Simulated assay, not measured.
Amino acid sequence: MADLSAIVDELYEASAVGDFEKVEGHLTDDFFVEEASSLPFAGKYTGKSALRELFPVMIETLGVTGLNRECVMVGERSVSAVVTLSVGEEEPIEMLEVFHFKGDKVCEIRPYYFDVNKVNAAVKAAKG
């Protein structure tokens, strides 16, 4: 059985340096991530290029300057991680990301933001 936690680690590392070819190698063809309708980057992003499309929009919209991952929890077919996004002078944005797997490929990432008000404050600050 694949080490799901190691796959998620590789996804974070490859995403951080913009290596989306490596990222896409870990995703299923029917991969998707859906951002809540209350977020400025709301919508369902689908296919292997979904993260290539979403990340630049999210990073620019929020003014993300850093990411810290902790409290990784591994299930039978999923991995969850608490993620803190640094966003300039604003309070950090905390979220839980749940990675769902089909075999050794990620088929879905489900993000849960702990406080959408912090997201909106970061968006306002990023716009200046």
Rank of each mutant, 00 (worst) to 15 (best):
V106K: 05
L27D: 03
S80W: 04
N68R: 15
Y113T: 11
Y113K: 06
A125M: 06
V123W: 00
G128W: 00
A14Y: 05
A81V: 12
N117I: 05
P111R: 11
E13C: 05
I109Y: 04
S86I: 03
L51Y: 02
M95C: 14
A2E: 12
V23A: 06
G75N: 07
K105C: 10
K124D: 01
T84R: 15
G25A: 07
M95D: 07
L27A: 06
S80P: 03
F99K: 03
A121W: 04
R52H: 07
L39N: 13
A121H: 08
S49P: 06
M95Q: 15
L67Y: 08
A6V: 11
S86P: 06
L4Q: 06
D29Q: 12
K118R: 15
L67A: 13
R110G: 09
R69I: 15
V72K: 14
S49C: 03
V8N: 02
A14W: 03
A42W: 08
E108N: 14
R69D: 09
G18F: 00
D19A: 11
T65S: 11
L85I: 07
T46H: 08
K118D: 11
A126P: 01
R52D: 02
V33G: 05
F32V: 07
A50S: 14
L54N: 00
K127G: 14
K22W: 01
F101P: 08
T61I: 01
P40I: 01
F31G: 02
